[in-house]
Amino acid sequence: MNKNELIRELQLSRGGSFSEAKDFLEAFIEIVTTELGHDGEITLQGFGTLKPWHQTLRDGRNPKTGEPVTIPPRISVKFRPGKFLLDALNKKE
């Protein structure tokens, strides 16, 4: 599912216009990005937790040439799924 498909599903499930659903999704993304950028954690009960993860400076190798390279530090995001999400994905039919 891409962004436009998600917007369309939001519109269909909640009603309203496509632009209202798009505005909602863009505001949600902006809030999550800002919070994670301030080292905050986002917890959506039952769905999961988004948490910034600080990767350190480390050595690596160029897979094509085998040449050693230094990988700079960066911030990534870890997602830990919640119980209800895991249960929904793994329910037996």
Rank of each mutant, 00 (worst) to 15 (best):
I42Y: 11
P63R: 08
K83L: 03
V77Y: 04
E30L: 14
I29L: 13
V32I: 14
T34S: 14
V69F: 09
W53S: 11
H54P: 00
A27Q: 11
T33Q: 13
W53C: 03
I31M: 13
V77Q: 07
E41D: 08
F79N: 09
E41P: 02
Q55C: 07
D23P: 06
T33N: 14
R80W: 01
R74Q: 04
T70L: 12
F18A: 13
K78V: 04
K78C: 04
Q55D: 03
E30C: 11
E30S: 15
D23M: 14
V32Q: 06
K22N: 04
E30Q: 12
G46P: 05
G82R: 01
E67K: 15
T65A: 08
R74W: 02
K51E: 09
I29K: 11
E26P: 02
T70P: 03
H38E: 14
F47S: 01
I75M: 14
Q55N: 09
T33S: 15
P68D: 10
G60L: 06
L25H: 10
I42C: 10
G82P: 00
P52W: 07
V32K: 09
H54E: 03
K51N: 07
K78T: 13
I31E: 12
K64G: 02
G66Q: 11
F47W: 08
F18C: 13
F28N: 00
P68H: 10
K51A: 09
T65D: 04
Q45W: 09
P68Y: 11
L85N: 00
G48N: 05
T49C: 01
F79Q: 06
E30N: 14
E35Q: 15
L50C: 06
E67Q: 14
